Computed example of a mutant assay.
Amino acid sequence: MSTTESPSVFNNLETLSTAELLAGINSVDQTVPQAVAKALPQIEALVEATVARLVVGGRLFYIGAGTSGRLGILDASECPPTFGVPHGVVIGLIAGGDTAIRKAVENAEDDAEQAWRDLEGYSITAQDIVVGIAASGRTPYVIGGLEQARRHGVATGCIVCNADSGVAAVAEFPVEVVTGPEFVTGSTRLKAGTAQKLVLNMLTTATFIRLGRVKGNKMVDMQLSNAKLVDRGEKMLMDELGIAQPEAAALLRQHGSVRAALVAYND
């Protein structure tokens, strides 16, 4: 049995108080960063492979089902506003299509051919990289997609939460974060989902820092899509250039991004 499906170390959950339930969940959650730390060398290899593809114009695809698929879509959707990269550089695909983002699509994850069809819809090439996300490590949608990607010369990685899984076996750059039994037996939206989110954070953050999308420790390419982000951009300029807020606001309005404003000011 996979460890993510192993029985919870807690029992009789329905008899516990709210305080006891929360303390139990919190206690097992604290093991997740430790599990991620053990996978850092694997995560490093996946980041390096991703940087090598994106620097020459390739794209990063995520494929997954259920919670795993939704996490990939979440990470992909956050890259344009955070790093200013175009939509379509990081793409999340989920078994069952967009309907499955909000509502489970019955048996969609069991179709081993569909992921490659989904990827073909984006004219995938050997410049790209595909990362399968599957807590169990045995999702047919993910395994089939990775197998076909490799047959077509596309780089492959994965994020799984069991050791020695079928998904990891077909990925060139596997990341195995072994999170163990869940608080509620088999509910991988809990610890496994948290671990996957941490790895996804690392993957795209490190990749886009390596690709020059952060200056110092600031998101200088972020999209100024709301008042909060405009305010953040003004503060970045004030800190970096030693100017007052009105001048920073004027620079930002004129040039449209923190990076462009910095370049123009220093020219």
Score class of each variant (00 low, 15 high):
48 E>M: 13
48 E>A: 15
48 E>S: 15
48 E>L: 15
49 A>F: 09
49 A>V: 06
51 V>A: 01
52 A>S: 15
52 A>P: 05
52 A>H: 14
53 R>S: 00
56 V>P: 01
56 V>R: 04
56 V>S: 11
57 G>D: 06
58 G>I: 00
58 G>F: 08
59 R>V: 03
59 R>C: 07
60 L>F: 09
60 L>W: 07
60 L>M: 08
61 F>Q: 03
61 F>W: 05
61 F>D: 01
62 Y>A: 01
62 Y>D: 03
63 I>K: 02
63 I>G: 01
65 A>Y: 04
65 A>G: 10
65 A>F: 05
65 A>L: 01
66 G>E: 03
66 G>R: 06
68 S>A: 14
69 G>R: 00
69 G>S: 10
70 R>G: 04
73 I>R: 03
74 L>V: 15
74 L>W: 10
75 D>G: 01
75 D>W: 00
75 D>K: 08
76 A>D: 11
76 A>W: 08
77 S>K: 08
78 E>Y: 00
78 E>N: 07
80 P>R: 05
80 P>Q: 04
80 P>M: 05
81 P>M: 14
82 T>P: 02
82 T>W: 07
82 T>H: 12
83 F>V: 03
83 F>E: 04
83 F>S: 00
84 G>C: 10
85 V>Y: 03
85 V>L: 04
86 P>H: 10
87 H>K: 15
87 H>P: 06
88 G>L: 09
88 G>S: 13
89 V>K: 09
90 V>Q: 02
92 G>L: 00
93 L>E: 04
94 I>S: 07
95 A>E: 12
96 G>D: 06
96 G>P: 01
96 G>K: 12
96 G>H: 04
96 G>C: 06
97 G>D: 14
98 D>P: 00
98 D>M: 05
100 A>T: 12
102 R>F: 10
102 R>Y: 14
103 K>F: 10
103 K>S: 09
103 K>N: 15
105 V>T: 12
105 V>F: 12
106 E>I: 07
106 E>Y: 12
107 N>M: 14
107 N>R: 12
107 N>I: 01
108 A>P: 08
108 A>D: 07
109 E>F: 06
110 D>I: 13
110 D>H: 15
112 A>T: 03
113 E>Y: 13
115 A>K: 13
115 A>H: 10
117 R>F: 15
117 R>S: 13
117 R>M: 12
118 D>F: 11
118 D>R: 05
